[in-house]
Design a protein around this nucleic acid. Structure first.
Length: 664
DNA sequence: CGGGACAACGTTTTT
DNA sequence: CGTTGTCCCG
């Protein structure tokens, strides 16, 4: 007898033909699917950690393009430019190259591009220069001195504090006086002067065509608010808007979105209220809850299934966020039921903590976990200093993200200042910097010179109108000639940079003992310049998205090899690793001491710990040194972070470190 | 007035 | 620990 088998799932009939090449339904869970396929009207996606937020955005970009929406009509605003590029790259991989053409970037970079196009509408006839934090401080310092506010014996706030106050006022939409009252009551007696100085600062920026980071947002909002025609045009240009990390946006950014969407309301914002970690920058996690009020008829979608972490890791994360005073909107679950219980590791001191982390990393490496799959996270940049030494000794390659900035080093800023002058001869901040580098020129002389130049109103050619005193005449002529030869020359950007570097090299050697190292940094800057054609583009990018690795890190990257990641938690946002170490999880460092000032700040620290813990897929180690060195008190005992204290052994393995000899 | 030497301070996270 | 402010000399 022959057996004839009827196959169960073979159809001569094709399944219902899809209009789309991408199997959205199969690739997404129902909530994600809804978010991806609801293309019109406002949508708020509450996306828990690891719930496929990026996936959802990526698929939605592809979907829009597949539906026939021109890529240039889609605007994707993210927290870093890298995040936007990555999403568009993935969307392109799903569908096709068109997705790369979608307009994407940060709020600041978008503002920069738009404002340059409409500069004249705001009275910035010939463009503007961007002041980074340090530049802004320099301007304030200059004005403070000019106003005679920093007389000795008087306790006037430092330039850094002043800048912080102004920025906070802008970002939180509060009067300066209010910020002083709330956060710096001890400076209330200087409130009048601070207000006056603030006015001077604004005027100065306007006169000299300068914008700081906050101005980019403020001016964009003003542009949209005061020019209905521009608002209409832009809204019609960007007919589909998506905003990532919405929990970390502030009121100004919300207003901008409101204006941009005014003609269509096609806005999808994605965020997680329990991952809001930028309150210090004016972000308010309640913003995300206000979205439906801003856009009536908002569709709310919640993504609660976590695809990233194992159950034991998620249990810790839920325990941490459960300690928050504010109640949150969702509870994460996972189907990865297995997994190793996270460990709490008490090390005798910082040194031992470093030994543990590096040794454990090497073991994981042996087990076949690539260094790329491992990250060490910390609250503040300096927490990893000791570990960095140990990693260097053991030849474990790493990149450090966050904390100190290559761009902020003096020699890089020096060279950039020369370029900034070429781009904007009214940029007095850069003039100041450039002139101070010339021998025998100090603040007073510098000011005289650039007054002379700006008053001539013939741009850089105004250098010729300066009559230098013999003291500095020779060195000044050298600068003058150099700038004159570059002004209006047909050299490419990188050639200009190289030429300037030859000019700057003697100054560098005179100024710094470690000039060979710094010269290397500058070489590296030249290789970055090669990628740009326009000076303005290069300068904007350096201000808005500066490369954040130093030259040593860059060299390591050249090998395209495995690298361990060291990162501040803020810079680790949105990323994930197989194994995560959270170091220095102790009272005073994490939460930082200052957080005790207010409940809000403490809550934010807690969310920060939550963000850190939810970066881990398989392994999570929390470590803390028992003895730490405190500058005031010397060695002091420390307690583990309150955010993880008292968690049961079942949920969190407690490890103590033992010396090899002692163990025998 | 510019520049170097020295003391004091306060210390997060980032566009 | 590195930056910021002050003092004093050339």
């Amino acid at each position: 007898m022959k057996r004839y088998v009827i196959k169960s799932a073979f159809g001569g009939l094709q399944p219902e033909e899809s209009l789309f090449s991408i199997p959205y339904k199969e690739a997404l869970n129902p909530a994600q699917y809804e978010a991806v396929t609801t293309l019109h009207g406002p949508i708020l996606v509450i996306a828990g950690a690891g719930s496929g937020k990026t996936r959802t955005l990526t698929y939605r970009v592809a979907r829009l393009v597949e539906e026939g929406v021109p890529p240039s009509a889609i605007l994707l605003l993210t927290f870093t430019r890298k995040a936007a590029q990555e999403m568009l790259r993935r969307a392109a991989a799903l569908l096709d190259q068109r997705c790369e053409k979608v307009a994407g970037g940060t709020f600041h970079s978008f503002a920069n591009l738009t404002l340059r196009r409409y500069a004249e509408k705001l009275g910035f006839q010939s463009g503007f220069s961007i002041l980074d934090r340090a530049d802004a401080e320099d301007v304030i310092n200059l004005l403070r001195t000019r106003m005679g506010l920093n007389l000795k014996g008087r306790r006037f706030p430092r330039k850094r504090t002043i800048t912080t106050i102004y920025s906070r006022a802008v970002n939180k939409v509060l009067p300066v006086r209010e910020v002083i009252f709330e956060d710096y009551p001890h400076f209330l007696k200087e409130a009048e002067n601070l207000l006056h100085l603030c006015g001077e600062y604004k005027a100065y920026k306007r006169e000299n065509l300068l914008m700081d980071y906050d101005d980019l947002l403020i001016h964009l909002r003003t542009l949209l608010a005061n020019n209905p025609d521009v608002q209409e045009t832009l809204s019609q240009t960007y007919r589909y808007i998506m905003v990532d990390e919405y929990q970390d946006t502030n009121k100004i950014q919300a207003d901008i979105i409101r204006f941009l969407a005014s003609t269509h309301n096609n806005v999808m914002v994605v965020g997680d209220d329990s991952q809001s970690i930028y309150a210090f920058r004016g972000a308010n996690f309640r913003n995300i809850m206000d979205f439906p009020a801003l856009f009536p008829g908002t569709n709310i979608v919640k993504l609660e299934e976590n695809y990233r972490s194992t159950q034991p890791i998620l249990a810790i994360a839920n325990e941490i966020i459960g300690r928050a005073k504010e109640k949150y909107t969702k509870v994460l679950f996972t189907q990865k039921g297995y997994g190793t219980v996270p460990a709490l590791v008490a090390a005798e001191d910082e040194r031992r903590q470093s030994l543990f982390v590096s040794q454990r990393i090497l073991e994981l490496r042996e087990e076949g976990i690539s260094l790329n799959q491992i990250a060490v996270l910390f609250r503040s940049g300096y927490h990893s200093f000791d570990l960095e030494i140990e990693l260097n000794q053991r030849n474990i390659p790493f990149v450090k993200v966050g904390g100190f900035k290559f761009m902020e080093t003096a020699h890089i800023k020096d060279l950039l200042a020369h370029l900034k002058i070429l781009a904007n001869p009214l940029d007095t901040v850069s003039w100041h910097r450039v002139l101070l580098l010339v021998e025998n020129i100090g603040p007073k002389t510098a000011e005289e010179i650039f007054h002379c130049v700006t008053r001539s109103s013939i741009g850089l050619k105004g250098l010729a109108t300066v009559k230098p005193k013999p003291r500095y005449a020779r060195a000044f002529e050298r600068l003058s000639k150099e700038m004159d030869s570059l002004d209006g020359s047909h050299l490419s950007l990188v050639e200009t940079g190289a030429k300037l570097m030859r000019y700057y090299e003697p100054i560098l050697e005179k100024k710094y003992d470690d000039y060979p190292k710094r010269a290397k940094d500058l070489e590296h800057l030249l290789t970055i310049m090669e990628r740009y054609r326009r000076l303005e583009d290069f300068l904007s990018d350096m201000a808005l998205e500066p490369p954040n690795a130093s030259v040593d890190d860059m060299l390591a990257t050249d090998y395209e090899d495995e690298q361990l990641v060291l990162s501040t938690i803020h810079s680790a946002k949105g990323l994930e690793w197989h194994t995560v170490f959270i170091i220095s999880a102790l009272e005073g460092r994490f939460p930082v001491t200052y957080a005790a000032r207010s409940d809000e700040e403490m809550e934010e620290e807690l969310r920060l710990m939550y963000v850190a813990a939810t970066r881990a897929k398989e392994n999570l180690y929390l470590t803390y040194p028992i003895n730490i060195y405190d500058r005031g008190a010397g060695m002091v005992f420390s307690r583990p972070s309150r955010f993880i204290e008292g968690i049961s052994e079942e949920m969190l393995d407690h490890w103590s470190l033992v010396n090899e000899e002692e163990e025998e």
